[in-house]
Design a protein around this nucleic acid. Sequence first.
DNA 1: CTGGGGAAGGGGCCC
DNA 2: AGGGCCCCTTCCCCA
Length: 370
Amino acid sequence: MRDVLRGAQLLGIQCVADACRDILGETAEAEGQEVSAGEQRPPQATSERTFRSLPPTQPPSPEPEELHPKLGQNGDPRAIREPGRGATLNGEFPHWAQERSLIAHPPPTQNDKLSEDDDMEGLGDDMMRSSSFPSSVADRGAATSVAGGGRKRKSQTPQQCPVCQKIIHGAGKLPRHMRTHTGEKPFQCSACGVRFTRNDKLKIHMRKHTGERPYTCSHCPARFLHSYDLKNHLSLHSGARPFECPLCHKAFAREDHLQRHRKGHSCLELRTRRPRRGPELGEDGGEKEGSPLSLQAHPSMFHPRSVLEGGGALAQLAPQRLASYPELFLRGLEMQGGRDLEREDPGGTRSPALQHDRWADEVEDEEIEE
DNA sequence: CTGGGGAAGGGGCCC
DNA sequence: AGGGCCCCTTCCCCA
């Protein structure tokens, strides 16, 4: 346990270190003296104080990436979870494990089957049951709402991760989330030894070995391991490429491919290469502040007159695309501003026709003014 | 740069 | 409340 504690301190996993101290019956100050020779680590707060008194202004925690995959020796996160491997314990489960739930769920072997989150009982759940584990956000509220101050209710959803402060929705999902910090992968494939953090991921993985392909295409004999594989495959049958770049009109079958495309430079280069013809006019006729980059770069490309006269970059677009451009242009504005019409308006209440009319009205108003 | 496969992580629903 | 199962999104990797 001291080895685990030392490892937790080295890795900065405060919750694990506190749990270890609880088990060892030590205070942080005492432990701090003990380890001070080798590590310049300042004494830690007691576990009780660590979690329960986290102020809202607590400085940001280290990024999870800084914490996790480096657990244990040789990068094996089980080093934390399987203290029996340590020299200190001589292969025996410690008394606390026998007394607590871990005795009912020893570290998994290839023949063992753990329930998905059972592993947390060895570490996280143990923490959670100890007084050191943080109350969830809702729990705090529930605790204060219980009249008479009786036995505190167990955690409700949502719960807040003590490491990254993220709010985790769903009953029983916090232990699962905690494994993303600890790096634990308690679920091991009996066929190839690959380990997973979650039981459901292992289950899907096992399909590779069993040959099970539960997702069958209704149009062809193709069968797939994953539901999303079938979903992608169906787009091939339909030819649907619903995700279109609002700037260059390239369409993608997958949303993440569109996102990758938009993060790239191709569209940006196209925009910044265009000379700026004049100030962009806002709705009030003045130049807009903080308008989208594309418009600042070359407003002529998007100017309605350029569209009508076939000028600008739009001249290179096919007529049928021009017909639908106002919709995409407006959508592009929405997305540039951090809002996504698709997400905000999945039902399509803001119809393309409506937006086209709005845009046409603006063109007509400008012509009247002239 | 794109298409495709796969993994990781979160959330919803049900028991 | 917790766990199992499933779906979804996002990201990474490779060809």
